[in-house]
Amino acid sequence: MIAYIQGNQARILSDLGQHVWLSLLPVLVGVVLALPAGYLTVRYRWLYQPVVNLGGILYSVPSLALFVVIPAIIPVGTLSPLNIVVALSVYSFALLARTVADALISVQGETTWAAAAMGFRPLRQLFGVELPMALPVMMAGLRVATVSNISLVSVGAIIGVGGLGDLFTRGLQLSYLAPIIVGIVLSVLLAAVCDSGIVLVQRWLTPWTRAGAR
C-alpha cells in the first residue's frame, strides 16, 4: 500500500485535485442559483410546490444517467469535466433551493412579524432578520450537498472524468486493492474536512445558536 502511494503520488494528487474542484464548484453554483430561487418561492408562494416537485424529480435521477443525458441537452462533451460540473450543480441546486425555501418559510412567524411592525423594509428584513435566522437550516443543507457531491464525483470515472474515481477504475482493471482503498479513504477524508470546515464557518456566523438555551 505504501509502495503504491509512493509510486503513484503524482497521479493520486492530481486525482484528488480534480476531485476537489469537480465536487465543490457545483456546490458554489448551486448556492448562487438556489438563494434567489428559494427567496422567490417564499415571496410568491405558488412557486413553492412546482420548485419542490421539480427539485425532487431532478434529485431522483441517478447520476450516471444525468452524466450521459446532459450532453444531449446542452452542448458539452460527455467526456468534458464541465459535464460533471453541470450534473452535480443540478443536484446541488435541487437540494439547496428547497432547503433555502424551507428555511426561509420556517422563520416566518412572530419574529418576522415584529420586524415588519417595527418598520423594517422588505429587503433589510430579508438580510437583517430572515437570512440570519434561516442560516442554521441552510448550512445543514449545504453540508448535505457538499458531502453527497464529494461521494458522487467518483461515478464520473465510468465515463472517464471522476477525480478519485480514477483510482477505482484502475483498481478494478488490475484487480488491485491499494488504489481503491486510497481512493475511498481520501474521498471520505475530503468529505470530513469540508464538512468540518462548514461547521466551523457556521459557528462563526451563528454564535447565538450556542448561547445556552434554558
Binding site: E110, T111, A114
Partner: peptide, 13 residues
C-alpha cells in the same frame, strides 16, 4: 412601539 405575546425578539441578536 410594538410589543407582542412572545416578545418576538431576534434570536440572532
Amino acid at each position: 412601539g410594538y410589543v407582542i405575546q412572545h416578545a418576538g425578539l431576534f434570536p440572532h441578536r
